[in-house]
Design a protein around this nucleic acid. Structure first.
Length: 415
DNA sequence: TCTGGGGTCCTAGGACCC
DNA sequence: TCTGGGGTCCTAGGACCC
């Protein structure tokens, strides 16, 4: 077993809000929120009032009357997030990016070049601060789980090293909600049996924990509470599904509402899939009603698909099924489509110029292949002239964009 | 004043096969 | 006629993460 702490977890502090304060110095030191209807990110000054991401704007203003709302500079987030990650990759190629603003790195192989992990982390923090102007917190430990917790403890703008000799002592005093996999529901369930710290969790008998949380959760949490995290750094991760969703406000549950919305979602997903020569066998829709309860329906096909029109037709049929099963629901507030069981079809790319489809990969029929080709032609036009140049544009469909596409793209994983 | 959008993983029941 | 058990896949719902 490794006895030295070489895993870094680096996490940009209040990332979007920090970028906005960087771009506009008059915002520094003030409570700000990126977004409007919904808070997408809050500065530390705003968090001090209880403002947090995902919160409705009116609620945030209620908590913090002087809160300043700013529009996001989403393209800049992507560029600065990439730049911060590339500071890490200047030290080691063993970097696992978790999201726009967060990554693990294993520096075991480069300490002879750059010094101790703590020294490397200090250098990373210094460079991100001076070159990009952003605060970043880093945790260092022997495992990913511990490093991640350490970076949370280090925030804001700090560095915490967990000495391998005192890991359990460090871990066991902390509240359970710092563990990866413990959210509001699990935290509340644990509180019912008077378990609040990771140390207390570690003492709960296995059968009791299984009864409370299920077997997988028990196994995961006991492993983490006893510091038996065996996860390795994964430099390449491909998405297992691709989806898109759109909040609608309160709309009547009718064809003329959900058809254009589903077209637009199917188009977004199809475009992404085709760009990476991916397609999927399972299509799922989610319909959220007026009271925010939601229902899903899915279907698994014999052959994978990626054509917008086919995706849209299947999604429409699934939504009709949902509405048929819930005849009393008159209002829908959100629609989502997700495609999973993804496969890669490189051969379709090679044969496209000849107008031929590979029997294994095409969606069922010649018609499917024709649609794929038409979609690809549209994709190529958009690559040159922009997304709205052609096709089922959201404007043409009367679909409102609650959130800019640039923001959506920040959360997309590699297909 | 009523809550965004991108994902992953687990559970439980049922169908179906051997 | 009733009995058995294991494995895989699909579906719906839910918790969680960023």
């Amino acid at each position: 077993m490794d006895t030295t702490a070489t895993i870094l977890h680096a996490d940009l502090d209040a990332f979007y809000a920090s970028v906005e304060q960087l771009l506009d110095p008059t915002l520094r030191g003030k409570p700000i929120a990126v977004g409007g209807g919904v808070v997408l990110a809050a500065s530390y000054e705003a968090k001090a009032f209880g403002v947090s991401g995902g919160m409705p704007g009116w609620r945030a203003r209620e908590l913090c009357p002087h809160l300043i709302f700013v529009d996001g500079h989403f393209k800049k987030y992507q560029r600065l997030g990439d730049a911060a990650i590339s500071v890490l990759t200047d030290f080691t190629p063993l970097v696992e990016r978790i999201s726009i603003d967060e990554a693990f790195a294993d520096v075991a192989g480069c300490t002879h070049l750059f010094g101790t992990p703590a020294k490397i982390a200090s250098a990373v923090r210094c460079r991100v601060r001076t070159e990009l102007g952003l605060p970043i917190s880093i945790g260092i430990a022997r495992t990913k789980h511990l490093a991640k917790i350490a970076s949370q403890v280090a925030k804001p703008d700090g560095l915490v090293v967990v000495d391998p000799a005192t890991e359990l002592a460090f871990l066991h005093d902390l509240p359970v909600e710092l563990m990866w996999g413990v959210g509001p529901v699990t935290r509340a369930r644990l509180a019912e049996i008077d378990v609040h710290t990771i140390g207390q969790l570690a003492q709960v008998p296995g059968w009791s924990l299984e009864q409370l949380l299920g077997r997988a959760a028990r196994d995961k949490l006991t492993a983490l509470a006893w510091n038996r995290d065996r996860r390795e750094i994964k430099t390449q991760r491909r998405a297992k599904s691709a989806g898109a969703q759109s909040a609608l406000g309160k709309k009547p549950a009718e064809e003329q509402v959900f058809r254009p919305a589903l077209r637009h979602l199917a188009d977004r997903i199809g475009t992404r899939l085709r760009a990476r020569f991916r397609s999927g066998r399972t299509v799922a829709v989610r319909v959220r009603f007026g009271d925010l309860r939601s229902v899903t329906r899915s279907v698994t096909l014999d052959a994978p698909i990626s054509a917008t029109a086919i995706l849209a037709e299947i999604a429409e049929e699934l939504v009709r099924r949902v509405l048929a099963d819930h005849p009393d629901e008159k209002i829908i507030s959100l629609l989502a489509i997700s495609v999973s069981h993804l496969e890669t079809c490189w051969d379709i790319q090679l044969e496209l110029p000849l107008g031929l489809g590979d029997e294994k990969c095409r969606p069922g029929t010649k018609r499917g292949m024709a649609r794929w080709s038409a979609d690809r032609a549209m994709d190529l036009i958009r690559d040159r002239f922009g997304y709205d140049a052609v096709g089922y544009g959201s404007v043409a469909l009367g679909v409102s964009r609650a959130v800019p596409d640039a923001f959506r793209e920040l959360a997309e994983k590699d297909l």
